[in-house]
């Protein structure tokens, strides 16, 4: 037997969650399909006025990404809570924060990363320029991990509550507003000919801040919820 390092624990939790998700692919696909459908509804409903579509594109994609990420939050801890594996996780001797960080990373790979990858294709429906698409992808790449981290905190706090799914959205959505503002701001800046650097830097700052605090805060929230 070998002692498991912190990195080993981090990798193990990611592998475990990805393996579980691969055995239940439908759960992963629902988030992605929801995102694709919501974004595609807008051009259909609003009509094909190119100017208007181009203007609303960043907002629509970002709001849809935000809602789609809410959809999968309920699953982050609840399955493990129901079958008792979460209790065992709380007894991990290395570091619960690292374990939670691993769960957040796995959650992002399954619900955030697919959105980032499919966003440029959806952007084409709105006649976005190549540069705007690039910045959109970049802003989502920086922003969606933050959504997963804030979401983890909400999911941990509402664990085991009735109607937790709705409650977690009410709790988390307001906290995500800054990410939404700077995410869309970056794309709007580039389409109006200004540098998106400041918006992207702020998103990067949010990412670092939440990396620092979210795993620890979520770990404490889990301990409180499991009492």
């Amino acid at each position: 037997m070998n002692k498991l390092s912190l990195m080993g624990l981090f990798g193990l939790v990611i592998r475990r969650d990805l393996m579980l998700a691969m055995r239940r692919r439908a759960d992963v696909l629902t988030t992605l399909i929801f995102f694709v459908i919501v974004v595609s509804l807008f051009p259909l409903a609003v009509g094909s006025e190119m100017d208007m579509l181009r203007k609303m594109a960043p907002g629509v994609v970002w709001v849809a990404a935000l809602l789609a990420s809410m959809l999968s939050l309920g699953r982050m801890f609840s399955a493990d809570y129901l079958d008792g594996t979460l209790e065992q996780m709380l007894l991990v001797p290395q570091s619960l924060s690292i374990l939670v960080l691993g769960k957040i990373a796995a959650h992002w790979m399954l619900s955030g990363l697919p959105l980032v990858l499919v966003a440029p294709v959806l952007g084409l429906q709105f006649d976005m320029s190549g540069q705007a698409l690039l910045i959109l992808v970049l802003s989502l790449l920086l922003g969606t991990p933050v959504l997963s981290m804030i979401g983890a905190f909400g999911a941990a706090l509402t664990l085991g509550l009735r109607g937790g799914g709705v409650l977690v959205s009410l709790l988390v959505l307001p906290l995500c507003i800054p990410v939404l503002i700077f995410g869309t701001g970056a794309v709007i800046a580039v389409t109006s000919g200004v540098s998106p650097a400041s918006n992207l830097s702020l998103l990067g700052a949010f990412l670092l801040m939440s990396l620092l605090f979210a795993p620890w805060v979520s770990a404490q929230a889990l301990r409180i919820s499991m009492e």
Partner: peptide, 26 residues
């Protein structure tokens, strides 16, 4: 505990490997 703390979708072997790693050793 009362709950078995094993994942239904994994095999007994995979479950054991995961819980061993969570307790700190591979």
């Amino acid at each position: 505990g009362h709950l078995n703390a094993i994942k239904d979708d994994l095999s007994a072997l995979e479950n054991l490997r995961v819980s061993s790693a969570l307790s700190g050793s591979t």
